[in-house]
């Protein structure tokens, strides 16, 4: 069995002059929870729409489960459950009837409706009309719909939108448990903290381009803590260190180093103190993923 669930090559979508997605090479393997991360308007939803065949790519290839999407649309969609942007609902139907719509179209057994209703805790509200549902309830109905067919690949676009904190927690735990049954998940978000808490693999998209794609550990490791040094005269300190062959990314007030091991910190300290400068701070700065993300998305190459 091929373990590559999603492979795109040079996936591109252009709208007239605007390029929404450019040269995307997405890789998702079986059992991964792939966090698709990017600010609003980065091209996440456009990419997801292309993966589902809702829109046609301008350029590039999409392979799902090792088969070309273009030639095998129906057999591929059979194995995918999805929630794209806002959840679909027919307001004049109850929650149960909404699920019944999809159950019928997918020819699934009746008991699946009850199962997914209880998974997203909508059993009690199942007989209410969905136009009376809160945004969070509609979102959960959307997730239930996506789970209905026990898909091999679940695609959730911003699934925690509109949910309250406990709802977010609940959905997160639900998603984290899915790979145990062999499911692969693509979950998009503009919130790093969210991806950080459930994804095993991360793809960061910005302005339509993939700027990072690897395991979440890689993302964290690539950005080790920094050493921040407060010293009386930054300019002089820089010059002295430069003489010793140590370069530093100094700012106005502080010196910055990308090494934090004790020997290195002591060395810096003793050099500066012996040169007659007063060192008033030696601090290890741990950067949150938010900082890393900002760094990735801002003009590339700073540090």
């Amino acid at each position: 069995m091929d373990d590559q669930i999603v492979v795109t090559n040079d996936l591109t979508k252009k709208y007239k002059k605007h390029t929404s997605v450019e040269g995307l090479n997405l890789r998702i393997e079986r059992g991964q929870i792939y966090g698709f991360l990017g600010p609003n308007g980065a091209g996440k939803t456009t990419t997801i729409r292309m993966l589902l065949g809702l829109i046609q790519p301008t350029k590039g290839r999409i392979e799902l489960f090792g088969k070309s999407l273009k030639e095998n649309r129906l057999s591929i969609l059979e194995r995918i459950g999805s929630l794209v942007e806002s959840p679909t609902y027919y307001g004049n139907l109850t929650g149960r009837e909404n699920l019944e719509v999809v159950r019928r179209l997918r020819s699934l057994p009746e008991q699946r409706v009850d199962e997914v209703l209880s998974i997203v805790r909508l059993t009690k509200a199942a007989h209410r009309l969905t136009k009376e549902y809160s945004l969070g309830m509609k979102q959960r109905l959307g997730i239930a719909t996506a789970l209905l067919s026990r898909p091999d690949l679940l695609i959730l676009d911003e699934p925690t939108n509109g949910l309250d904190p406990s709802g977010i927690q609940e959905i997160r735990e639900l998603i984290k448990g899915l790979p145990q049954s062999g499911m692969s998940v693509l979950v998009s978000s503009h919130l790093l903290s969210e991806i950080d808490q459930m994804a095993t693999q991360v793809g960061v998209i910005h302005n339509g381009k993939m700027i990072f794609q690897d395991s979440i550990e890689q993302l964290r490791q690539r950005h080790k803590p920094l050493l921040k040094v407060g010293v009386s005269d930054v300019m002089e300190a820089k010059a002295i260190l430069q003489g010793k062959g140590i370069t530093t990314g100094g700012e106005k007030e502080f010196l910055w180093f990308d090494r934090t091991e004790p020997a290195f910190v002591s060395e810096i300290n003793s050099i500066l103190v012996q040169s007659g400068l007063s060192v008033y701070r030696l601090e290890e700065v741990k950067r949150s993923l938010e900082d890393i993300f900002l760094e990735l998305t801002s003009a590339e190459g700073s540090l």
């Binding site: 589902l52 129906l74 806002s86 999809v102």
Partner: peptide
């Protein structure tokens, strides 16, 4: 209308139906 209002088209076309 219901398809436009409730986002039904995208659901219909992501199901395995021609």
């Amino acid at each position: 209308r219901e398809e436009h209002v409730g986002g039904g088209w995208k659901q219909l076309f992501t199901l395995p139906i021609k």
